[in-house]
Structure formats: C-alpha cells, structure tokens
Nucleic acid binder design. Structure first.
Lengths: 205, 205
DNA sequence: TTGGAATATTAAACACTGTTTAATTATTTT
DNA sequence: AAAATAATTAAACAGTGTTTAATATTCCAA
C-alpha cells in the first residue's frame, strides 16, 4: 500500500507541475495566449503528456479557477466578526471588489470567461456548486438584513442576484476596459467611487 | 467624378458583403468560431482578399459591433416621450435588459468581449466615443433625476456608472452562464426579477 | 487599339493552435 | 529474464490569423 501510495503521489506531482506551469503562464499572459505547447515547454515534457492528466485545455483552467474561489472565500472569513448584517453586506462588497481589482485575470477566469464554465456542469466537485459558495454567503447576509428590518418586501434570492450583479458589473466593465472609453479620466477610481454610490443608496434604505 | 464614385461604391460593395457574411456567421456560431476562411468561403473569394478591406479580424468585428450601438440607441428613442426622469431611468433599464436578452451575442460583442475594444482606442469615428453615446444618455437622465430631487448627495457620474453596472452585471452574468450554476431553477426569470428588485429600491428613495 | 501602370485577387506559405495516433521508452510484475 | 503494463514522445491532423509574391483584371494615356 505504501509503495502504490508513493506512486500515486508521484503521479499527482506531475499533475501539479502542469498546474503550476499553467498558472504562472496564465498570470503572465492570460488564458488565450497560454498554449498547451507553452505549458509543456515549461515543464520540459512533450505536449502530449498533458492529455494524460487533463481531458483538455479547459480542464486545466477549470482546475486553476477553483483555487480562486478558495482564495476569495478565505478573504470573506473576516466577515464573521461583523455583527451588523448591513455592515457585513457592505464589507462583503468591498472585499469582493478588492479581490477583483487585485486579481483581475483570476476574476476574469472565475466570472467572465466562457472557457471554464462549460466544465462546471460536467464536473462533480466544483467550487461553484459546493454548499458554502460565495453566492450563498451573500444570500445568507441578505436574509439577515431582511430579518433585521432592511429590504422590506424584497425577494432575498433575486435581491442577492441584483446586488451581486452591481459589484460584478462594476469590476467587469473595468476589467474588460469599457470604462476607459466612457470615463477616461476616472478609470482608476471609478469602481471604488461607484461602490461608494451604492453604499449611499443602502444607507438611505 | 461620377465614374470614380461608382468605383468607390463597387469597392464598398465587397466590403459590405464581407460584413454581411461575417455578421450572419457570427450570429450563427459566435465570434471565435467564425474564421476568416469561413467568411471567404461564404462570399466565394479567397481568404486573402479580406485583408484588403480590413486590417485584421478585429476590425471586422469592430465594424459589426458599431451596428449594435445604433440598434440600441434607436430603441432608446422612445424614452424621449417619458417626461418623469425616474420613470425614464426605469424604462431605460428595461430597454437595455431586453436588448441584451434578445441579442445576447451582439451584447457580448459590445460589452463583454475583449476583441473589439482594443480597436476602439485607435479608431477615430467610433460609437463608443461619439457624443450621444448610451452612457451619456444615462448620465443625462440621472442628472435630471437629481434636478428633480432624487439621489441627493450623489455624484452623477459615479452613480451613472453604478446603475449601468447593475444592469450590465445582471445580463452579463446571465449571458456568461454564471446564474445557471447558482440559480438553476430561475435562470429564465432571474434577470427580470433582479431588475424588479432594483426598481423596488429606486421607488423607496 | 495597344501597352504600360495601377489595382484586385489569389495560391501558397508561415508560424501558430488544440488534439489524437501510433510508436517508443521505462517500469513493474510474473 | 520475459511478458505485461504504464509513461512518454514524435508525428500527424485539421484548423487558425496573417503575409508574401505571383497572377489576373481593369484603367488610362499614347
């Protein structure tokens, strides 16, 4: 058993090396410009070997984007210390936006790209589906807000989707360079400024 | 002069045929799966000819996505008859969302894809930059709302960005299939439901 | 009408891409 | 040591966007 365990580990090792190479290349130049041959070059194997560890290129980037969700979820942990649900909601927005702006390529992979989402539907253990996903965390917070008297007459699920969309919209328009065109002077601050406007609205409720 | 004009028109004609072929292929199968050779096949010319009319593939899709803005702007025209600025703002959101859901590929090209936006910065006459763009229309409406007593203490520019982001976020999460994973039961209605939640908030201000 | 210049068009190649195949090398088991 | 299994590779396939040089076509002046 011990021996076959070691074999298992050694096999996993190459899988990890592929993933590490893929990740560094992806962070250097993005998904599209990272080719199977690039990855193979970096780990000094032939391109074919990659298909013994991953079904296709999508599966590699699906595996990578899983790490992003864990990262994001970790940053959300500090929210457990925020008692007031409305304060928690706002802090959540700030953490979400900061994560996106500090890791734009990872955010892109997680929430914008077409690529890895196809794989999500076929794969069993996936960060999207898993119980404590980020969206459910948001929904729970919204429900706490409603219980505390905020958002009277709202549908918590649809409201969660709307609020998620607000922060996602702001960061994704920025990442995909649509605010550079529309607000060239404020491109650096507009996402944070927009978030501020959202908080002003929440404060008035 | 008349003769060289006709020549001009005939030259434009092939350019248009390329564009028409590209558009139909793009609506059938998306940008990525539409190749230069596909387009050339459809117009029964060799692939090389396309580069006499367009710098590269991006320029073709940039030209195409221009049409989308004109389409969207046309739909916005009915808003001129809505006197109340807050009602106009809400109607605007509905038109925007309907446009996105009815033309998801075009919307994707206009507001999500990386491809054509690079070209926007280099090109002189572009729907993004042009005076009466959709964003300025939104900003104008927001300013009218402020003048009418709504949104006290808000920065109209940042608020416009935030409101744009809310509708963009909802439709882009839907188009890029992120709500299928998170809310599989409501995927057909969630965008409209989310918009409803947004209107509820606006009504409370 | 003819010859030369300008233009339009193409065939072929370049350097890539993701993926699959069969062949080869290495390792494990009998 | 031989056979079976697994790991790894080389080579090919079918495609991509783009560029090059060659060819066909059109135009205009002599």
């Amino acid at each position: 058993m011990g021996i076959s365990d070691r074999k298992e580990r050694e096999k996993e090792e190459l899988r990890d090396r592929i993933l590490i190479a893929a990740k560094s290349l992806f962070l250097e130049r993005g998904v599209e410009k990272t080719s199977i041959r690039n990855i193979a070059d970096r780990i000094e194997y032939s391109p074919g070997i990659i298909y013994h560890y991953f079904k296709d290129k999508n599966e590699i980037f699906h595996a990578l984007h899983q790490g992003g969700f864990i990262q994001l979820m970790e940053k959300m942990q500090v929210l457990n210390s925020v008692r007031n649900p409305m304060e928690r909601l706002k802090a959540m927005g700030s953490i979400y936006v900061r994560f996106a702006m500090e890791n734009p390529d990872m955010y892109d992979l997680m929430f914008i790209k077409e690529a890895p989402i196809d794989h999500v539907f076929n794969s069993k253990d996936d960060q999207w589906k898993e119980g404590g996903g980020t969206f459910n965390f948001l929904r729970k917070t919204i429900e706490d807000c409603i219980a505390a008297g905020y958002f009277k007459g709202h549908d918590s699920e649809a409201l969660s989707y709307m609020i998620w969309s607000t922060v996602h919209g702001m960061v994704s328009l920025s990442i995909r360079r649509r605010c550079e065109v529309v607000l060239p002077d404020r491109q650096d601050s507009i996402v944070v400024d927009g978030l501020e406007e959202f908080y002003k609205i929440l404060d008035r409720l």
